[in-house]
């Protein structure tokens, strides 16, 4: 089998106030896989994500991205390889126009001129947002800002796309539009979400995180169908939702 796109081994981390958040997280993701990371609030999911590109430095364990270990001297290349889309697009979109925001990442890696324009328009086209290129980000709707946030990361040609709760607070139509965009991308994907039907629809594989560890890893439908596992980890399916009855044509191939 190919080398993992992302490998996390024995990751441990405590915040400066002493709160232990990660207690030996272990998993790996192969190129092209789409994986959902599920778990209750406070399980350490967002903290884990901040380790994937060296924003946080672990107290123990290590992270490897496509064969390159996350270390202070590799961190620049790691951040190009791991594209993180943060939960609040107002944190992700900080420049004064959409064009500048999407150009920010590639420009930091020395891309300029026509190639930069091409990257910006290519990424915005991939998320269906080419029409807002000269608008200020704060004039867009939440759904539009989420898609632009995905474009800011795609413009860097990452190896793996990491999304932190991409469907939160979105109306059903925007949620659907974002799902269509994500389903159309040919990229390795790690998606943190509390939206279990979204996880089932987009990700053939899921992992459950609790108390700073990965406590389950397997096919999404199987995990969601395991009532004991779900309730032990404070996960609940929406009322009336049965993963075994989800329409097969909408589910991704395993």
């Amino acid at each position: 089998m190919s080398a993992p796109a992302l490998e996390v081994r024995g990751l441990e981390y405590a915040y400066p106030d002493g709160t232990q958040v990660l207690r030996g997280a272990d998993f790996h993701i192969h190129p092209g896989e789409r994986v959902a990371l599920l778990g209750p609030n406070g399980a350490g999911k967002t903290t884990l994500v901040l380790h994937l590109n060296g924003i946080l430095t672990p107290d123990g364990g290590d992270v490897t991205v496509a064969g390159l270990a996350v270390q202070p001297r590799t961190v620049k290349e790691i951040r190009r390889r791991v594209g993180i889309v943060f939960q609040d697009p107002d944190d992700q979109l900080f420049m004064t126009t959409v064009r500048q925001d999407v150009a920010f990442g590639p420009a930091n890696y020395g891309v300029t001129g026509e190639e930069l324009d091409r990257r910006v328009m290519g990424a915005l086209t991939a998320v269906g947002m080419a029409g807002v290129v000269d608008r200020p980000p704060h004039h867009l709707s939440l759904g539009e800002r989420r898609r632009v946030a995905v474009a800011t990361v795609l413009a860097m040609n990452p190896e793996i796309l990491v999304l932190d709760e991409p469907s939160s607070n979105m109306d059903p139509a925007s949620r659907r539009e974002l799902a269509d965009v994500l389903a159309g991308l040919e990229i390795t994907l790690l998606m943190i979400t509390h939206d279990l039907p979204y996880a089932l629809e987009l990700c053939p594989r899921a992992m459950i995180m609790n108390h700073g560890r990965i406590v389950a890893d397997g096919p999404t439908a199987a995990l969601l169908g395991d009532r004991e596992l779900m309730s032990a980890n404070r996960l609940e399916l929406p009322l009336g939702f049965d993963p075994s009855l989800a329409r097969p044509e909408r589910l991704p191939a395993p």
């Binding site: 992700q92 500048q100 920010f104």
Partner: peptide, 19 residues
């Protein structure tokens, strides 16, 4: 959080001159 988002896209202390 914005600073984390900037670091995640390769920010190293200087904004690129764009536009």
């Amino acid at each position: 959080r914005v600073y984390d988002a900037m670091l995640s896209r390769g920010y190293q202390g200087r904004l690129p001159q764009l536009g």
